[in-house]
Design a protein around this nucleic acid. Structure first.
Lengths: 218, 218
DNA sequence: TTCCCGATCGAACGCTCGTCCGGTTCTCCC
DNA sequence: GGGAGAACCGGACGAGCGTTCGATCGGGAA
């Protein structure tokens, strides 16, 4: 066994530690000096592995998104039933979220930090992944009243919000949560909205869908 | 009409402009100098209205949460039917989110920035609001298989994720979204999970609910 | 042994940040 | 007019930031 780690191994280690620090303190509040301390690599030594702090964030996000999507395709392979595919999608997403909480927090929390080409590259990955999700929903057949776009994002919201509340000692594990969220989503998505029955008498404001500004002083 | 604004009016204006800047750039990246420029108040003049940048964030979050919860109670008054109350809750939440997107983004995105008493005060507000939500779910009767705690957070996830995707020119307005999300949630929440039918054959890993680390190198 | 080059480091640079101090202006009341 | 207190400001301070530069280390090739 070689004691010396290779270039790639050391880079991955730096990415892993950096992700943990970004997740804990947030990208902007975390300093390269924090990362230097956590990795035992000197401040300037780190710049041998990335060109800038922003590129470091990009490397983390790109690697995570790539792996997430790649594993989804692996898991989906051979499955044709639409409902089963939805279930696999949700399970894959939640497993990753709970197994790599720090990385996934960085992915969803620091989504709009990158600029230029880095931003474009990550957004491309994100769009491809979201398209895969929307395709699975489309396979389910016509929805019962909720638009596929809203429904897709509602599902993503359910799943991505997890990092703000999940406690492993109290809450269900990834597979159980996947069952529950698939169930939660599926029934609502396919059940038609009863015509008219859902209407709610207008109350305050009157302007449809508007709420007064939160800064109102009365 | 008095041309000179009162102390309170000016404070609220500062809070409003600050919220917009925090939402756009993120709390840590936004500087007091940015806020000074946006409000036309000198750098040091701002400190007449708050003791520190953190207190400024606290004032925004406290005011928003307080107003949100207060209006919920107003809207709920007189309504006794459990489903109607859920619908009112979702509608109130979404109306606020879409009418005050910047403030709500600050509320959910910069949730764990505060420390000490500020943090405690906001968390108290948040817990009270979440408890109100969970109480409404409890009124719905026993769920069909999803725990109320998970279900509550799933619902919050759906709603709070909105600021990442909603485009007013494409997507439904707050009231329609409220209808759809209530519908989505309600059917899944009350429909029992068919015993055994939801199980999915294990595939990769084998470890129940685990995914291999994203940093695996093979 | 000598040389080379990828890998690593200490020390600094220029900049921006949050905050504070001392003083000035404005407004109202006597 | 004069005094008091609220409202406001210019300019600076020290700290921390991302990044860079020139020098050094260490192990395989010649």
């Amino acid at each position: 066994m070689d004691a010396r780690p290779t270039y790639d191994e050391k880079l991955l280690r730096i990415l892993r530690e950096s992700a943990a620090i970004f997740a804990a303190k947030g990208y902007h509040r975390a300093s390269i000096r924090d990362i230097s301390a956590a990795t035992d690599v000197s401040l300037s030594g780190l710049y041998y592995y990335f060109r800038s702090k922003e590129e470091l964030l990009f490397l983390i996000q790109d690697h995570c998104f790539g792996t997430l999507h790649h594993r989804l395709n692996e898991e989906l392979e051979g499955s044709t039933d639409a409902v089963a595919r939805l279930r696999i999608f949700v399970r894959n997403h939640l497993r990753f979220f709970l197994s790599n909480q720090a990385e996934m927090k960085v992915l969803s929390h620091e989504a709009d930090v990158l600029t230029g080409e880095h931003r474009a590259a990550v957004q491309k990955r994100k769009r491809a992944y979201a398209a895969a999700a929307e395709a699975i929903l489309t396979e389910l057949g016509p929805p019962g009243g909720v638009k596929p776009r809203s429904a897709t994002f509602a599902l993503f919201g359910m799943m991505n919000w997890i990092y703000t509340w999940h406690r492993p000692d109290v809450d269900p594990d990834a597979d159980r949560l996947a069952e529950q969220m698939t169930h939660l989503f599926l029934h609502g998505y396919r059940t038609p909205i009863a015509e008219g029955a859902e209407a709610l008498p207008e109350r305050s404001g009157g302007g449809r869908g508007d709420a007064p500004s939160i800064w109102r002083t009365d």
